[in-house]
């Protein structure tokens, strides 16, 4: 079992401590921005979650390319794990984004490029899982999923640009705003970002481990 290993137990413990510390810093040791107050603090969570989601979909693409080149099932497992975890994070982006937007912009949904790109990617990945479900032969599914993962991520910059020019009046997005803010924000922000990235790596290792066990069992069951 994944958590039988002493090393993984230590990692999990450190991650829980790190997340608790992250929450504590965000609540007590980040400056209160006038007018935005607590709503702004959502961003110490929201932006790292969004970063992790996009990173994960990037990993799907890399795993897809590697699978098509090497035809090694290991890369298919990496791709599937990254797609699943990426979608978990992406749904969190789509929930926390509107929660932030409601008090700040006055309305929960604005066609802002980042948020819109997140939504479109999320929808593409719903299709990705349906393709995996209904694709047929396992080896064919692996190939098709790899191709779709590549296409989906290549679409990201194009979606982002077209939405940006489509609704140019929507300007305010979080990261630029944060960089302009006074000191005391960047430290906690980057701590949170790094922590979520490490958490992501840990989740990937966990999921890949399970997928490998599953595949071993299923390949021998006749």
């Amino acid at each position: 079992m994944f958590l039988h290993s002493r090393r993984n137990q230590i990692w999990l413990g450190l991650l829980i401590l790190g997340l608790a510390l992250d929450l504590w810093i965000i609540v007590n040791h980040t400056p209160m921005i006038p007018q935005q107050h607590w709503a702004q603090k959502i961003f110490y969570i929201h932006v790292p979650v969004a970063w992790t989601a996009f990173l994960s979909y990037f990993v799907v693409m890399i795993a897809g390319i590697a699978y098509l080149v090497k035809k090694d099932n290991r890369w298919d497992r990496v791709g599937l794990a990254a797609a699943e975890i990426g979608t978990v994070f992406m749904s969190l982006v789509l929930v926390t984004g509107p929660i932030w937007a409601k008090p700040i912009w006055g309305k929960p949904w604005v066609w802002e490029p980042r948020l819109t790109t997140s939504l479109i990617l999320f929808l593409i990945y719903i299709g990705y899982f349906m393709l995996r479900e209904f694709g047929g032969h396992p080896e064919r599914i692996a190939r098709y999923a790899a191709v779709l993962g590549i296409i989906a991520f290549l679409d990201v910059p194009i979606i982002f640009l077209s939405v940006k020019f489509w609704a140019p009046e929507v300007q305010s997005h979080p990261q630029v705003e944060m960089a302009k803010q006074p000191t005391g924000i960047l430290g906690p922000f980057f701590y949170s970002l790094a922590l979520f990235t490490i958490l992501y790596v840990f989740m990937m290792l966990f999921r890949i481990h399970t997928l490998k066990l599953k595949e071993e069992v299923q390949s021998h069951a006749v």
Binding site: I120, L121, L123, G127, L131, F134, G136, R140, I151, A152
Partner: peptide
């Protein structure tokens, strides 16, 4: 060649 290809095509194509 997937099952439900007639559903899968628009679901994949529209967002892309």
């Amino acid at each position: 060649r997937a099952k439900m290809s007639e559903v899968l095509l628009p679901i994949l194509l529209f967002p892309l």
